[in-house]
Design a binder for these strands. Structure first.
Lengths: 382, 382
DNA sequence: ACGGAGCGGGAAAGCGCTTTCCCGTAAGCT
DNA sequence: AGCTTACGGGAAAGCGCTTTCCCGCTCCGT
């Protein structure tokens, strides 16, 4: 099998240490894998060619250089026999480029991010990219950290899928890190507003929230309540702002007591909802700033408060995560094409960075289901 | 990104130290970043030390070598000023080890995998590991592919979180790839049975399914239906087998017509449920092999078939994904501590590979909710 | 017959780190 | 003093690739 057992691998491989001619002990074990990962050099030796040729044969690229039919086959065979896979770090170092992209989310377990990530990963697969997924668990500090680590990895691009944080100082630091990354040849894509100049995929958060309000208003609701999220998140700000503006333009300006923070989690939202629904003029219409919280709100209404949805209270969610239609009752919500967001971000990576940042807008759409209905008969006002 | 032609052939040796007193041109541009990524060399120059010292100062490790207080500070300052992050691929090459671990799942958007991934990522974060997430979309071929790519990346370990495939030939190839990976110093952790010898986290799929059956039996149900998944998945086989054995030992052996394939997706399961519930002696008890499908089944029952759950039909799911409690009605299900599974797998990575494969068992638990109730009065049997 | 032009292959220079030697200096002993 | 140890620092050898040169061929046109 080994046609070149007698080759004398002088020069390169041995040049460093062994000046004394020695019998190259490894060379007669047929397909026995030597210790440690197989190197290109070993493949080359087995094929009886130089490592340069082996490299060219295996990665055809390198300019227009073509390896002869015969040699190419020998190399390919040798590689297969040895189960050779090239050392990606070494390759990255030599080429000074990698095929990994980073995706930074708040939490993979959150269906919103899971869906976006899934969209991104689909595209990554199609294009042979590897995805490094980083979850910040909503800690801005970690976001910065991961960005630096991704820069260290020489990730070709990173998608900042989590919401931005509305914090002056943080934004400054983020921008600095992003600049550094870009200066190194990296490409940053933001989902939503992060306060940085970068290619961005911008979901219609404001318009979506306005849609939700409008829908409820058209159903006759006049008493609104909002289950918000952490105000520091730009996504929250945008959605809240969209709702607020729409309400104001409808002549129903929002007061602080109408808004509670549901922490973007089911449990907190459930608690928050109880607060909101307590008191004399409790709202009949709830705009919940994401579906995960809406699930909590629905639970609160049904189990804690004993209020019927949509008969007594209407609620609309946001995002249209997969389970929205399975809630009780099926949730009217503002759909964001989540997988698309991931896909779009990925496509921006594929087309590479441009001189001026691009923005692709992603529309929101109202998906009416059974959690909304006409407002109940008005309370007995004399 | 790469400055070639202009390099002095002896660049390295010369530029290293200024034997000739020279004004070190870079040092007076305070934070002006040179072109391309900053290198250790540049940091060293700015700090006026050798790259060896710079390396030691930045990564303290290297044996017991300690860098003097003074120099260390100079290096750290220089690094900060230049926003230096070390080139991970280069580092990986030199150290021949990385801090990335791979996690291979079927689909991130599936809450089952999302939860496992989240658990794993939490641990990864605590230990400074970077996670490469690969989604196979249930294509075995891709699983092999990713494993090879992860090997190429010199990922320190990989977690095979997706279900195994019960296919002789595939298993053989997987084993070969895993062996190659291990021979290269990698560490493989499997979740569930993959037919390979590796550390594994083993969820109680059989026992869980038995639990589900038993629960329904105890409620008086005698006519069972099972919404299964693709038979090729070992997870499906195990769960199905668990249910089947339990039924048999209860004197109710399963016939082929009692089992339908719900494809592990909501939509397919919805369709499958319609089939199952059609016919003379339709089941009153449904065991659905995962919660995602259960959502579809519930929808079918409620919207397509007009059957009340649990009054007319009881259903129990599997996994207890986060939204299970929010379904209509809240789903009785077999809980698997998903995040734990991810955590455990990660911990096995941290403790490193052992001579003989370890197994950690993960228990399943019945979570009774409102989708199950005593069997309806038996059909009029004379 | 002869001087390119092309082509296919190999030698070797890097890529940016880590780590092994090696070395000068300052302590620590006798 | 003389000698051994540490100790802290630098030079340089690699790590496993890619890619630039360079070189020997064969093939052509004239």
């Amino acid at each position: 099998m080994r046609a070149h057992g007698s080759r004398h691998p002088l020069g390169y491989a041995l040049s460093n240490r062994y000046s004394v001619p020695m019998p190259t002990p490894t060379s007669d074990a047929p397909a026995a894998r030597p210790t440690g990962p197989v190197t290109l050099q070993q493949v080359a030796e087995r094929a009886g060619v130089s490592s340069a040729t082996a490299s060219r044969a295996l990665h055809g690229s390198s300019g227009t250089r073509i390896v002869g039919e015969e040699l190419r086959k020998r190399v390919l065979d040798a590689a297969r026999e040895l189960r050779y896979v090239s050392n990606a770090p070494a390759q990255a170092l030599a080429r000074s480029t990698t095929s990994v992209v980073g995706v930074v989310v708040h939490d993979v377990a959150d269906p919103y991010f899971a869906a976006i990530a899934a969209g991104a990963m689909g595209v990554a697969r199609e294009h042979g990219l590897l995805v490094m997924l980083a979850a910040t668990f909503r800690d801005p500090e970690l976001e910065l950290d991961y960005l630096a680590r991704l820069r260290a990895q020489r990730a070709r691009a990173v998608v900042l899928a989590g919401s931005g944080f509305a914090d002056r100082e943080f934004t400054r630091r983020l921008a600095a890190e992003v600049d550094a990354y870009r200066a190194d040849g990296g490409h940053v894509i933001a989902v939503g507003s992060h306060g940085i100049a970068a290619d961005t995929v911008r979901p219609a958060n404001r318009a979506g929230a306005a849609l939700a309000v409008r829908h409820l208003y058209d159903l006759g609701h006049r008493r609104f309540g909002i289950v918000s999220g952490p105000r520091a998140l730009t996504t929250v700000r945008d959605r809240l702002d969209g709702a607020r503006r729409q309400l104001r333009s409808l002549g129903l300006p929002l007061t602080p007591s109408q808004v509670v923070d549901g922490g973007f989690t089911r449990e907190q939202a459930r608690t928050a909802a109880r607060t909101l629904l307590t008191g004399p003029s409790a709202p009949t219409a709830l705009v919940v700033l994401n579906d995960v919280m809406a699930a909590g709100v629905l639970a609160a209404l049904r189990e804690d408060l004993g209020l019927r949805v949509p008969d007594q209270v209407s609620v609309v969610g946001f995002d249209d995560v997969p389970f929205a239609a399975d809630l009780n009752p099926p949730l009217t919500t503002i759909r964001l094409p989540l997988a698309d967001i991931g896909t779009q971000a990925m496509h921006m990576i594929l087309t590479g960075p441009t001189v001026t940042p691009r923005t692709v807008d992603v529309d929101a759409e109202l998906i009416p289901r059974s959690s909304t209905a006409p407002a109940p008969a008005p309370a007995p006002t004399p």
